[in-house]
């Protein structure tokens, strides 16, 4: 009996000691990005998340994988609403996995949007409406993902591409590429930021883009894309001839400017 009491005492004393220690280790591991930050979205959602985390233990990745495969099945069935809701579940389970945000947004902004745009069974007005709605949804998904992963170069890059190819908002595209580069994105994201800015309507963006491209030009010499956009910027900024670069290249996309903000 004496030993039993001792055992209980040891267990309780250890419990009191371990709590602050666990608190510290959990904090450290979160800082090292080994564990997920606790998620604060809203009261209801928070509780659901907590319950899910607790009940699945370390198997959330596995569960996410399963839902992800189901989403792929729904994708082949072109059931876009279902794809969206399954990806919502997947990203809730693994909010720190950039690829899930990337894929979710890609499905909406590219696959679903194009599907509606070219769907002959729908009225033209509706097709355009659905096209834009799904692009918006894709952008919203990336923004949501960036709340969890503000430093992820990949998500920023994808946002840049989305604004470039889909919404044609070149200022936002340039900003996103620039963010990607700032957070360790691959080298081309810097150049793409400048290219996008070159096509925007914003004076400040032009200046930033010009600074980048001029530096790259001086460093590594002329390449077709670089020269094209540099010329474009020189024209936009109305630079005197003496400051312009020598390499002559046709300004190919002079007329194809930004289409204006998304409606």
């Amino acid at each position: 009996m004496k030993r039993k009491l001792q055992a209980i005492a040891v267990l309780l004393a250890f419990g009191a000691v371990k709590l602050p220690l666990e608190q510290k280790i959990t904090r450290d591991l979160r800082q090292q990005k080994m564990l997920e930050e606790p998620i604060h979205l809203g009261v209801g959602e928070d509780l659901g998340q907590a319950g899910l985390a607790a009940s699945l233990g370390g198997l959330r990745g596995l569960a996410a994988c399963m839902f992800h495969l189901r989403a792929h099945v729904e994708f082949t069935n072109v059931n876009w609403a279902k794809v969206d809701s399954l990806y919502k579940l997947v990203t809730r389970l693994q909010p720190r996995q950039a690829r899930y945000w990337d894929e979710a947004s890609w499905h909406m902004a590219y696959n679903a949007a194009s599907y509606y745009l070219y769907n002959q069974e729908l009225k033209p007005a509706l097709r355009g409406q659905l096209y834009h709605d799904h692009i918006k949804r894709g952008i919203a998904i990336l923004h949501e993902g960036l709340k969890f992963l503000p430093d992820d170069p990949r998500l920023w890059q994808k946002l840049g591409e989305l604004h470039w190819h889909r919404s044609k908002d070149f200022k936002k595209s340039g900003d996103a590429f620039w963010n990607s580069f700032q957070h360790g994105g691959l080298g081309f994201t810097e150049r793409f930021a400048a290219y996008a800015w070159a096509q925007s309507n914003d004076l400040e963006s032009w200046k930033k883009g010009y600074a980048i491209l001029k530096r790259l030009y001086d460093k590594s010499g002329p390449t077709p894309g670089l020269v094209e956009h540099l010329k474009m910027l020189e024209q936009n900024l109305n630079l005197p001839a003496s400051q312009r670069i020598r390499a002559a290249a046709a300004v190919l996309r002079g007329q194809e400017r930004q289409t204006g903000p998304l409606k």
């Binding site: 309780l12 371990k18 709590l19 666990e22 564990l35 997920e36 985390a53 370390g58 720190r96 690829r99």
Partner: peptide, 20 residues
């Protein structure tokens, strides 16, 4: 909290899978 060990401390699998 006193009785149970914190097992979530060992859940680095998800982070490793995502490439951390």
């Amino acid at each position: 909290a006193v009785i149970c060990p914190d097992l979530a401390q060992f859940d680095i699998v998800d982070s490793v899978v995502s490439g951390e």
